[in-house]
Design a binder for these strands. Structure first.
Lengths: 142, 142
DNA sequence: CTCGAATTGTTGAACATTCAATATTTACTC
DNA sequence: GAGTAAATATTGAATGTTCAACAATTCGAG
């Protein structure tokens, strides 16, 4: 059984595409001095409702300790704040501050312009086909 | 311009899919006590020819300092070895040892079985469509 | 009720990654 | 050809992540 080259493995293609797209997005977000993870956190919180650390970790693809320390930094920057959950006192709810909301809007605009650039240069159909397949794969593998 | 939910961003879907597939692969490779990056390195080197650090870093999606330290560990485990390039003495060529070759074969078998599992449960067509789109995106974005 | 088990979040130590600076060799310019 | 610039790999400090242990709270069986 001859093993195919690594460039034909799904896991490799995903890693490569993810790396490249992330690199491009990082370059744009850099103008606001922020990394992709913080954009994700602000974006999730920007609807104004609070999330527990567990919910948030799941939503932004980070594990708990990493999220704790990232939130520490964002609290220090006054982008988000913590409130103990009155319903379940084990939980801590994270909220987006006004300053975080304002930053979130600027970051969204940067992220949207990146995606628009991909759609322009690569095509609308390909982009949508890829998104649908990724959703299906996640659904099937999750 | 209302910003779509994060789950509709291409960058998020790529990150999520990559994370999930990598997690599955990691779980399998764990039986050999090895991480995905080392599988990639051994796979690339397993054709027997040497690669410079630069070539290898590009091929396995790692930046130079990270690769240097990963190779340090693999040298300590006798999986690979370094030889100064006689053509260009700035370069160092990395070769796979016999022990590395044997491990590479076992890892390939694990990786192939993971991919076979995806094809089984998700479908041959979807898998191939996705691979072609990812290749095209990388080509277009690289 | 009460006590053990499960859930949630944080912390600290070990570990890994990254950025900037360095050393070495090669290529290029005049 | 001498001197400067570029390419290659490594190192060390700063930073970030992960794993395992911990504290606090809630749940649930008897």
């Amino acid at each position: 059984m001859p093993s195919p080259p690594i460039t034909e493995h799904l896991t490799y293609l995903l890693a490569q595409a993810n790396r490249e797209i992330n690199r491009q997005l990082d370059a744009r977000l850099k103008s606001e001095g922020v990394q992709v993870e913080q954009w994700r956190i602000l974006k999730v919180l920007s609807d104004g409702s609070g999330r527990s650390m567990g919910e948030l970790a799941e939503a932004v693809l980070l594990n708990h300790p990493t999220l704790t320390k990232t939130i520490d930094r964002m609290v220090a920057n006054s982008l988000v704040y913590r409130i103990p959950d009155p319903q379940d006192r084990r939980k801590v709810l994270i909220f987006c501050s006004d300053r975080g909301m304002a930053l979130s809007r600027r970051l969204n605009s940067l992220a949207l312009s990146q995606e628009a650039h991909i759609v322009d240069s690569w095509g609308d159909k390909a982009t949508n086909d890829l998104k649908r397949l990724l959703e299906s794969l996640i659904e099937s593998a999750g």
